[in-house]
C-alpha cells in the first residue's frame, strides 16, 4: 500500500496537484500517556513533486506539519497523460514514492 494519494488535473493550461500522505508526523515533544516517555520525533522532511521527471516543487517540512500531511499546489503547463511523481523522505530515512498521470 502506498502511503501517498495523488491527484493531478489539468485545466486551461494549469495543472493542479493534490496529495495526501499517511504519516504520523511525531514532533518528538509528545509524551506517551501510559509510560510518560517521550515519543521520538518521526516526521517527513522532504517532499519532491515532479512533472515528466522535472522537479516542480520541493517542500522542506518541520514537525509542525499536521499528521497525515496534505499538500496542494499548481503549475503552468502539463497535459492529460503527463506523468506526475511525488516522493517523500522522513527523519528516519524512511521514504515512499508514487506516480500518477494527469487526468
Amino acid at each position: 500500500m502506498s502511503s501517498i494519494k495523488l491527484r493531478a488535473s489539468a485545466k486551461d493550461g494549469v495543472t493542479t496537484i493534490k496529495a495526501l500522505i499517511s504519516h504520523p508526523m511525531e514532533t518528538g515533544t509528545r509524551k506517551d500517556a501510559k509510560t510518560g516517555e517521550k515519543i521520538p520525533a518521526h516526521f517527513i522532511q522532504e517532499v519532491v513533486c515532479t512533472h515528466n521527471g522535472n522537479t516542480v516543487i520541493t517542500g522542506n517540512w518541520g514537525a509542525a506539519i499536521s499528521k497525515n500531511p496534505y499538500l496542494s499546489f499548481s503549475f503552468k503547463g502539463g497535459a492529460s497523460g503527463d506523468k506526475i511523481g511525488l516522493s517523500w523522505v522522513d527523519n528516519k530515512g524512511e521514504k515512499d514514492a508514487d506516480e500518477t498521470a494527469i487526468s
Binding site: V14, M25, T27, T29, H51, N54, T55, V56, I57, T58, G59, N60, W61, G62, A63, A64, I65, S66, P69, Y70, L71, S72, F73, S74, F75, K76, G77
Partner: peptide, 24 residues
C-alpha cells in the same frame, strides 16, 4: 511554536506561487 519554521516550499520552473497545506 517551539520551532517557528513549519514549512519551506522551493518553487521550480512553471510552479505557481500558491500552496496549501495543514499545520500544527
Amino acid at each position: 511554536n517551539q520551532n517557528p519554521l513549519a514549512a519551506n516550499f522551493v518553487l521550480g520552473a512553471g510552479a505557481i506561487a500558491d500552496v496549501s497545506t495543514r499545520i500544527k
